[in-house]
Simulated scan of single mutants.
Amino acid sequence: MLAIALALGAGLGWGASDFLGGLKSRSRPVPSVLLISQATALVLLTITTAVRGVGPPDPAFLVQAAVAGLGETVGIAALYRGLAVGTMSIVAPVAAAAPLIPLLAGLVAGQVPGPLQFAGLVLTALGLVIASRRPATGTGDRPLTSILYGLLAALGFGTFFLSMHHAGQADTGWALLTARLTTVIVIASAVVLTRHHVTVRRSDLPVLASIGVLIVAADAQYAVASMLGPVSVAAVLGSLHTVVTIVLARIVLKERLTRPQMIGMGVVLAGVLALSLT
């Protein structure tokens, strides 16, 4: 039960941070949004690790954490860009395919799903396809662009789910710090190489900092949840962040969902429920 509660908490935190990040990316360059929010998260994790006073684990676990950080960087960048130039209610459901990666990894390792888990997989995949369909309106919608960014985000987040599970088995704190350090290094390198000028208003800083805080809290909850219970269940429940993003987009931005999208989201939730019961 605790693992489920933590995974749901992670989904809530990620959903709120995704929405805020995507919203800010509509008025500010994505690299600027990423750099400041991720730097905030890194500072928090550095302080926490220093206070704990625990030495680093075996380098093999740190490599896994670095891979997790790289995957999350790709996922966040793709998601923020997709939310900025596409339609939130398309990008978010497609990004929900991320749990398929740890599930498929389990299959390769010989973890054959039971009937209920298999049904959940089928329902989730089918629901994502249905939810991703949105008729062109000729008013600036970019369904294909939204789907592609969503798929890239799913690949990145799925890699994070799997790698963080392995890295966190040694020490959660060091796994989170290494992953975040990797993220900041990659983003900072991209900013330097592209000669991007970081531009934000002072009024943006509280929101960008809060994104970093939310990410740290969500990552920590997921890391613990994936160790207390099956990583596949933690990943699926954590992916409910897409539902949070869609709800916030509907409430704040007044984005409308078509009937097929609503049906698709219902099928996705049914699949998520089936997976969580395995």
Rank of each mutant, 00 (worst) to 15 (best):
M1H: 11
L2Y: 06
A5Y: 06
L8S: 07
A10D: 06
G11V: 14
G11M: 07
G13S: 07
F19L: 13
S27K: 14
S27T: 14
S32I: 13
I36P: 13
A39R: 04
V43H: 03
L44F: 05
L45F: 04
G55C: 00
P56L: 12
P59S: 11
Q64E: 15
Q64C: 12
A68K: 11
G69V: 11
G69I: 09
L79V: 12
T87M: 09
S89V: 00
A98D: 03
I101G: 01
A105L: 15
G110H: 02
G114E: 09
L121G: 01
T124M: 13
G127T: 01
A131W: 01
P135F: 10
T137H: 08
L155N: 00
F157R: 08
T159V: 15
H166M: 09
A167P: 03
Q169T: 12
T182V: 10
H196T: 12
S203L: 14
S203W: 09
P206L: 13
A209Q: 00
I211L: 12
V213C: 10
I215N: 10
M227P: 10
L237C: 14
L240P: 03
L240S: 10
T245E: 12
I246V: 13
A249R: 05
V252Y: 00
R256I: 10
T258G: 08
L269E: 01
V272Q: 04
L275E: 09
S276Y: 10
